[in-house]
Design a protein around this nucleic acid. Structure first.
Lengths: 114, 114
DNA sequence: TCAGTATGTTTAGATGATCTACATATGGCG
DNA sequence: CGCCATATGTAGATCATCTAAACATACTGA
């Protein structure tokens, strides 16, 4: 399918924050989870995700820490902050606002009684 | 509420095409309809809409024609084309792909069985 | 041992489509 | 006459992502 750039841009923040709200994770795992949860439809290039995570850290929406399991590559884990949860709430509200509008427009014609 | 720029960018095409799929309309009316249908939450500046309509015309997603009712300002009406309907279908598919992902992430935790 | 693949993170610089801000025009109303 | 709502248009700035590449390590199989 390949999401358009604007669709990716509009949803990547909400998706990342929603995932981290489930529990800490790291870049590569986030990409795999999104791919799996979307049935393969959404497959972010690494270069798309990492800069967003960095920006979120700068903005205080997430925090990060390194972890190095025995015999594995080190990973930078991210956790959502209180500010990040607030931002997630706003993302949800915006998404649902647009979704409700689209549902009206895609619904049965009679509803279009303006 | 004020939609973020990325959210506007990601949805404006789908909203415009969905509206025109209901029937021909013109810029100013589209803005009013979107404002009304969203309960005032979405209020596009005119300068946001017109360039998008122009680009859609260039891309062949819509066609336009002038109309000048008695004693009223002239309006440039837009109608959706076959190509526009195809694009609308793709917009729908993309929107629902992301929406389904978000619904999973916002849903009850147990579903998160990766 | 060596190549290939999956894992994992990073960033410099190009890109490009919207947003800002303004311009233009006219009909109706008090 | 002045103001607001109606109605459309565009030049140039803006700015966050995308592209493309690099770096690093663990494992697998030939």
């Amino acid at each position: 399918m390949n999401l358009s750039k604007p669709m990716t841009a509009a949803s990547i923040n909400a998706v990342i924050l929603a995932l981290l709200d489930r529990g800490d994770s790291y870049g590569y795992e986030i990409i795999k989870n999104v791919r799996a949860l979307s049935g393969g439809a959404i497959d972010w290039p690494a270069g798309s995700l990492y800069p967003v995570l960095h920006r979120m850290r700068t903005d205080g929406l997430v925090e990060s820490y390194w972890q190095q399991p025995e015999g594995e590559r080190r990973r930078r884990y991210y956790s959502i902050t209180a500010k990040g949860r607030k931002a997630l709430g706003e993302e949800k509200a915006q998404w649902m606002t647009v979704h409700n509008l689209l549902m009206q427009l895609w619904g049965p014609d009679p509803a279009f009684g303006l």
